[in-house]
Write a protein that binds this DNA or RNA. Sequence first.
DNA 1: GTATTAAGGATATATGATATCCGTAATAGG
DNA 2: CCTATTACGGATATCATATATCCTTAATAC
Lengths: 161, 161
Amino acid sequence: MQLKNQVEWALHCCAILAGLGQDRHLATRDLAELHGVPKEYLSKALQALSQAGIVEGTLGPSGGYRLARAAGAISFLDIVEAVEGRQSSFVCTEIRKNNPCRPSQMCDDRPCAIARAMWAADEAWRKSLRGVTLADLARTLEKDIPPALWKKTRQWVAERT
Amino acid sequence: MQLKNQVEWALHCCAILAGLGQDRHLATRDLAELHGVPKEYLSKALQALSQAGIVEGTLGPSGGYRLARAAGAISFLDIVEAVEGRQSSFVCTEIRKNNPCRPSQMCDDRPCAIARAMWAADEAWRKSLRGVTLADLARTLEKDIPPALWKKTRQWVAERT
DNA sequence: GTATTAAGGATATATGATATCCGTAATAGG
DNA sequence: CCTATTACGGATATCATATATCCTTAATAC
């Protein structure tokens, strides 16, 4: 079980978009070059973010993407779910119903106990991701990244907005 | 991102094995029939559990599987990891290194901040699964399952051990 | 000795992830 | 207008993995 590469790409792209000035846009081409990933495929991830209302795309020359709302109002979970979907990692196929001892018309009042435990873990994962916003990430990155690289990257991006 | 069906199968099989009497074995064929899944493929999941030291296989007629240790000492995480592997669901491909502004010889003292957040969520998921044992599951199932079905199933299994 | 079982290798099939290409509509600037 | 540029979405190709089956081997109970 592995998340798509697009999740990683989307998170990095959102981190960059969170650092953009007000009403500035950055094109897919530039986001792809900055992260060294194929432009056409990255485009699919950005479209998913757009459909989820996390980013906004603008057409035409000088167009591109920007965040659709404040960085503090966008969680990791929002981004992960936009790309990966909202389905739990555990899918219950109700194999308990294949039990030959079970009356065929029998109907269950609760989901399978195994599924409940797996879904609880899934919810713990989501809760953790829900607790981290792009604003949090920006603060962490500023502490992590060497000032020279930070400044140079900001400028590289600014030249293209 | 979705866990394999084998994870669900493995959990259900362990739940059954946890209800077996001391030194009783149940064959792959019976576990497959009880859950309505293909015997040959289920066998792969049971082999993974065996390799992880969660169950023990016995050869020959009247052979089969039993738990390798007490139900209270086997967690959901043990079983999930045996089938699914121990790798985090988030794989960091270090795309930050593709940043054209970055000096090529530059070396990072910490993992990427995005990866750290994703791995923290992964750990929350694991922590949740680590907190549920087969003994817990057995108690829950006994409350969940109608007594008639519970008894009939126990007997079905007992006839085959 | 015979039947039965787990174990594991080899292989086929289906599904989903990854990647590319193309057409369309919108938009900025000349 | 006209042109270049952009997001967007559909169609398709390629590759990795999950799913599934088959076969051989070694151990074991009777």
